[in-house]
Amino acid sequence: MASTTPTDTPPAPPLSPRSGTSTGRAGDKIFSGLSKGSGILLLVIMASIAGFLTYRAAIAISKDEGNFLTTFDWNASADPPVFGIAVLLVGTVISSIVAMVIAVPIAVGIALFISHYAPRRLAAPIAYIVDLLAAVPSIIYGIWGAIVLVPYLAGLNLWLDQYFAWTYIFDQTQPGVARNMLTVGILLAIMILPIVTSVSREVFLQVPRMNEEAALALGATRWEVIRLSVLPFGRSGVISASMLGLGRALGETMAVATVLSPSYLMSLHLLDPGGGTFAQNIAAKFGEANGVGRDALIASGLVLFVLTLLVNGAARLIIARRKEYSGANA
């Protein structure tokens, strides 16, 4: 505060974050040691995870008789071991894309409703309920998905196959129960809905009042205010919210493992049972695997780790870039 009035009496020495360390009091030393130690511990843990994954993955890949990237099979415990991540990579990405396509528009809609449409006494409970969805353990989603969603979606599958088979992805070549990538995607969509909704809602609530009034004063309706002021301001925030949701969808394990009937067949038909994801595959195989089998699963885990890291990195980049769009540079 004093910095704005340079003509005042000599200013007090600046309060740097480190000025406390010079007192040498025991409490300061202990606390600074603790916080420094925690920071270092975190780095050590991260480095050892990365090192462990890379080391074991290298062992597995060196023994792989197939091609780690392109083989459509997973016989890692066999002799010689033959395994590849192609099906898992495609399955992970496809189920996450389906989840995003379904979840993001709904989440944006809910967020807009909470931030701009709902009366206040309704907005708070709805926001709370959406946040509550995030607290449901994923195994519960998995059980619900397997018992309720799978039979329920059989009809939708038939309908999609009947009218949209020409889109290729909705062409059902193997009729059966809906233990397929579409069901997985729908389940993942429900699971990432809360995070995408609450981050989007926060961004929409941050739209400066003056930006909205600019649109209102031009005679914009509520929807036009949203289109002119809220969505352009919130766009990058919604993108980063989606990335956070994507990060969760990529790594989801139990819900996928419970619902999907996995196979190592490469198929882009969303309605056919089969396929798999990294996390689901690890969960399904880890118990019975040993030796190279475990290392192979660890190698696939490393790929998932890198994939998630990339997605989160992209999200952070977009969040950082958002500052330019904030409209605060007026």
Binding site: M210, E213, A215, A217, L218, G219, T221, P232, G327, A330
Partner: peptide, 20 residues
């Protein structure tokens, strides 16, 4: 909404649409 289309307003802080 129709009223605001016939009565224009300029605000204290300049508020152009930042992304436009």
């Amino acid at each position: 909404v129709a009223v605001r289309r016939t009565v224009g307003m300029v605000f204290q802080r300049p508020n152009p649409f930042p992304t436009m």
